[in-house]
Design a protein around this nucleic acid. Structure first.
Lengths: 352, 352
DNA sequence: TTGTACGCGTTATCAG
DNA sequence: CTGATAACGCGTACAA
């Protein structure tokens, strides 16, 4: 506890302020909270003076005990090291601070046990609400939390059911956008690197890809669709399998950036130049995608806003505003990184 | 406050547990804290039973008020979005959780005002200690904190004076290592992209570069030394200036990865191939460096350990162990990314 | 071995 | 308008 063990002595308390100002602690409390209760102007000034004199800061812990609110929220992510999450964390922290809330960070590695451990900590009243970013399929505990009336919001993760407030990016629109981009450039044989089969978000993205093709009167060819695990390794493996199938393609759209990066690696190793021979488009907004060479065209998620909006929604929930939208869907945006010559059409419409 | 506004009613308190077990709250307290105070086995079991029955979790806020410790620490970073910090944050969080501490995250953007605002929040007893990662030159507030007896540790930032506990990587050794690597490969004309002039860490790294040269009986040529700002843009600008000077060089060592990335961009734009024409070595361990193409050879900081060690030191400080080392210096390591042909000698010792 | 009662620093309620 | 005072939930001397 800051200042507690300082040899300067404990922080001044409301009592110190009161006695120094020659008033009761009740009056001091009213002043520092500018309560609606009327306080004489002169008295108020006297109080404020001794507040600054003593460098008084109300003790948040005591206040929390009394008011039943700690003015802090938790942000639970699988792994802050995963480049997708820092931007979310930043959005969350900025918004929270604007409202005077502190943010407690937790990493779960997607481990349900770790997740549960966190929930227990939170239950002991550390925080007023919880934000779960990219939490795994395990929603049992979440529902438990909801049942207890804990305000919670999911970020960038769809668990369906509509029971829990969620803020996410439209994955369907995103992949439709990316695929359409390639189609407009003239590509006709476009492969798809998808996420894990069962996952709702993966399914949704696949559907976006399919829709784009159909809008161009093309039949999705299931031989050109492989699934991975949303990670670089998965991208490598998926691309390797795709190449093994020996189906010609002039472009690839990946369900996320990390897979796109892995795929590009394998493509280059196989002697195919990017983007001259194969154009690649990813999904997600992870900052380092900008540094990848050749530049990766990406459908960017408004990651920062995702975090900020989640906080707004969470605060609304905490205020008891149950009326709001339970589901906020943001639109992604196509980002063609440094158009240094690349990404141009498969020169001509080769096949077809 | 979790559970407070739940319609399920408030969380059970120590009183509920006590009455259900037919004992006093003191006994319950002793059991759940397994205090040295003797408690009859049977009584203990009865208490524990009602604890699980009621799903009791001690209220951390009340406990904090009583004990004078919140069991949480703050991690203040300039910007969690900067890829250098997530790994630190992860190390911090893991270590903290192992000890039952929560981590409160804060971004300052290096703005002294924001920094000060945080300190005020912390002063209100949110946290038991503070970790400052990469904080700017402004140390005034820090000393103020120290004076108040707040446990604080600096991560990856040297403010000198030895007044504040610090955990950092040996930048001198790092750049000496990277430069020596190039020298061993046969390079003799090695340029240096440094950090901001005044900064202690920048100076230190420059000295490492110089030392390596001298150890090879080479005079550092100040025409080959340019300074930037530790960011990608700075790397671009610095490299542009270097090229303008028209001094031949076969290798570049950058004071950090971001600058190295910017430099490589400009080099390629200037038609120089990497690493065939110019070898590049960076300093820092930011994950995406691994994805840069061509692969960037790097002197890696043990970022995760930096965070973990800082927590250990902080906890020691909180326990009042003033005796420990005030300055922990970790050694960096040379990481030659995927040796895909590159990074080889300037073929022969061209000049000299 | 167990229980009673006080205080941690605030806020809120009720008298004055 | 101001001031006592009772909680908030817990840990711990002190008493039994």
């Amino acid at each position: 506890m800051i200042g507690r063990q300082g040899r300067t002595g404990s922080n001044p308390t409301i009592r110190d302020v009161a006695s120094r100002a020659g008033v009761s602690i009740a009056t001091v409390s009213r002043v520092i909270n500018n309560s609606p209760h009327k306080v004489h102007g002169a008295t108020r000034r006297r109080v404020l003076r001794s507040v600054v004199r003593l460098g008084y800061h109300p003790n948040a812990v005591a206040r929390g005990l009394r008011r039943g609110t700690s003015h802090s929220i938790a942000l639970i992510v699988p792994d802050i090291t995963n480049p997708f999450f820092p931007a979310i964390a930043r959005g969350v922290e900025d918004a929270a601070r604007r409202h005077g809330f502190a943010v407690v960070l937790g990493n779960t590695d997607g481990d349900p046990q770790r997740e549960r451990a966190y929930l227990d900590i939170l239950r002991t009243r550390w925080v007023d609400g919880v934000l779960f970013a990219g939490v795994g399929g395990e929603v049992g505990d979440l529902h438990e939390l909801m049942a207890e009336g804990v305000p919670a919001v999911l970020i960038a993760r769809d668990v369906g059911g509509g029971q829990i407030d969620t803020v996410l990016t439209d994955g369907f629109a995103g992949l439709r956008l990316g695929t359409t981009h390639l189609l407009r450039l003239g590509h006709r044989r476009i492969a798809f690197l998808g996420g894990p089969r069962g996952l709702p978000v993966a399914r949704e993205r696949l559907n976006g890809y399919r829709r784009a093709l159909r809008e161009f009167r093309l039949q999705p060819d299931h031989h050109m669709i492989v699934s991975g695990d949303f990670r670089v390794d998965g991208g490598r493996a998926a691309m390797a399998r795709l190449l093994a199938r020996d189906r010609p393609f002039t472009a690839v759209v990946a369900a996320n950036d990390l897979m796109a990066i892995g795929a590009m690696e394998v493509l280059r190793a196989a002697g195919r130049r990017i983007p001259e021979d194969v154009a690649v488009v990813g999904f997600d907004d992870i900052p380092f995608a900008a540094f990848v060479d050749p530049p990766l065209t990406t459908v960017a998620q408004p990651t920062y806003r995702l975090g900020a909006l989640a906080v707004e929604r969470l605060l609304a929930l905490m205020r008891g505003e149950v009326g709001g939208p339970r589901r906020i869907v943001l639109q992604p945006q196509l980002v063609v990184r440094r158009s240094c010559g690349g990404d141009r059409p498969g020169s001509d419409q080769r096949d077809r």
